[in-house]
Design a protein around this nucleic acid. Structure first.
Length: 198
DNA sequence: TTTGAGCCGTGAT
DNA sequence: ATCACGGCTCAAA
């Protein structure tokens, strides 16, 4: 039994940080909720438009009122988080009509454990790849990085709070050039008041 | 501080 | 079923 899922996108320029944010989602009309698919960062608006074109995403102007209001709430929540007004974005999502559908995003036993362990790390705190592995009784610290690399919901799933054992920040947003990703990671930690970020 | 070998789950094929 | 590939670590140089 298939449900036809049409992925829509919504993007905006957040305050505080440089990159644009694009959110892909599908709107569940019957539940009047938004099911998040992915959050990505782009350096420019033209990069986003290119991305939308290539993936043939829907940029409908005729959004349901409810859909529109959830998106606005989401944008506000992210901005509030980036300015330090909202502390915990993951918690905040629970009070909104937003579904994360983590079961579907992290299908393997290992990746689910990684994520479950990760979301216990509070804002302002940090942990390491190897610590996460230890907590789930595994030695696969390298594979922890692989899971986080594929995190489709950065910011909300706080993979930026995971850094290297040696105190360096480690990667962020795999596909982009590393300085850019690392700087963004540092900004996020800083916003949360993490002492690591100085 | 840099290098190199070991590690182990993923995603692509 | 493979297999190459990392958001990593540790030790050695």
């Amino acid at each position: 039994m298939w449900r036809y899922v049409e992925i829509s996108v919504f993007y905006f320029k957040p305050n505080i940080i440089d990159p644009f944010i694009i959110i892909s989602y599908d709107y569940l009309k019957n539940q009047k909720k938004i099911n998040l698919t992915e959050i990505r960062f782009f350096k420019s608006e033209s990069d986003i438009l290119e991305y939308i074109r290539i993936n043939k995403f829907e940029m409908s102007n005729h959004k349901d009122d409810k859909e529109r209001s959830i998106l606005l709430q989401l944008e506000n929540a992210i901005n509030d988080y980036l300015t330090g007004i909202i502390i915990d974005l993951f918690e905040e999502m629970k009070s909104m009509d937003v579904l994360l559908d983590l079961r579907n995003k992290f299908k393997t036993d290992f990746s689910q454990k990684v994520i479950n362990s990760l979301i216990k790390i509070r804002p302002g705190e940090s942990t390491t790849y190897s610590d996460i592995a230890k907590k789930i009784n595994s030695k696969a610290y390298r594979a922890v990085g692989s899971v986080l690399r594929n995190n489709p919901l950065p910011l909300i799933i706080p993979c930026h709070r995971v850094i290297k054992q040696n105190g360096k920040l480690g990667g962020f947003m795999g596909q982009m050039d590393e300085d850019w990703g690392t700087n963004l990671k540092r900004s996020l930690l800083k916003i949360e008041g993490n002492i690591i970020s100085k």
